[in-house]
Simulated assay, not measured.
Amino acid sequence: MENPTKRGLRERALAARRALPEAERAGAGSAIRDTLTDLPLLTTGGTVAVHYSVGTEPDTRKLVAALWKHGTYVLLPVMLPGGELDWAAYDGPDSLAPAGHGLLEPTGPRYGPDAVRRAAAVLCPALAVDRSGGRLGRGAGCYDRALARVGPHTLVLAVIYDTELVERVPVEPHDRPVHGVVTPQRGVLRF
């Protein structure tokens, strides 16, 4: 059974996201793109694994396109049965197809769940993060499993709205921490 504190925090975060005006969400995506494309680690031609935003998540679609145009090798997740994430390359907007739940996934060759191990950085979704790196996802655990595979020098940032950096996120043994966050107004904050 899910931790009731996690469930309540998740419900509040999702409600707050739904209440954000579309213009604010779009502006957040532009600010996140601008901040991260100024980060040399992400734009020097290495590999970056990024979630492709859906719904009211902070927009990462503009970021994915900008990184790809910079020559960064961008990996996007592909949901496998059982909740594992596989990874495939983003090769422009025509390389994506609908995958259910509003998600778009790359259609090219898949590189396996361990492909994230070679990434210089992983940009993952979250509903809330605390300054110790505790991350609250949607509850399926797919990113916790993926983050357990990252290399020891991989920078892991959660992409959130400014209000989602909170005092404390309840964590359990299977939860994987992040190294920092990127928000529209604060930019990159490392812990």
Score class of each variant (00 low, 15 high):
residue 54 V to F: 07
residue 118 R to I: 14
residue 54 V to E: 09
residue 47 T to K: 01
residue 177 P to G: 12
residue 40 P to T: 09
residue 36 L to R: 00
residue 81 P to L: 11
residue 66 A to Q: 04
residue 12 R to A: 15
residue 144 D to R: 03
residue 162 D to Q: 09
residue 128 A to D: 09
residue 48 V to N: 02
residue 19 A to Y: 00
residue 9 L to G: 13
residue 76 L to K: 03
residue 178 V to I: 06
residue 181 V to T: 12
residue 22 E to P: 13
residue 175 D to Y: 02
residue 15 A to L: 11
residue 39 L to W: 08
residue 16 A to H: 08
residue 115 A to Q: 05
residue 96 L to F: 02
residue 79 M to R: 14
residue 77 P to D: 07
residue 165 L to D: 14
residue 91 D to G: 14
residue 150 V to Q: 07
residue 111 Y to C: 07
residue 22 E to K: 12
residue 12 R to P: 10
residue 160 I to Y: 02
residue 114 D to P: 02
residue 26 A to L: 15
residue 187 G to F: 05
residue 42 L to P: 04
residue 159 V to P: 02
residue 52 Y to E: 03
residue 93 P to R: 05
residue 180 G to S: 07
residue 177 P to N: 14
residue 84 E to R: 14
residue 10 R to E: 08
residue 71 G to M: 08
residue 37 T to H: 00
residue 154 T to C: 11
residue 12 R to S: 15
residue 81 P to H: 10
residue 95 S to F: 00
residue 67 L to H: 09
residue 167 E to C: 13
residue 38 D to P: 00
residue 113 P to T: 13
residue 86 D to T: 09
residue 18 R to T: 06
residue 36 L to I: 04
residue 90 Y to K: 01
residue 123 L to F: 05
residue 147 L to S: 06
residue 57 E to G: 01
residue 188 V to Q: 03
residue 11 E to Y: 12
residue 63 L to W: 05
residue 176 R to Y: 05
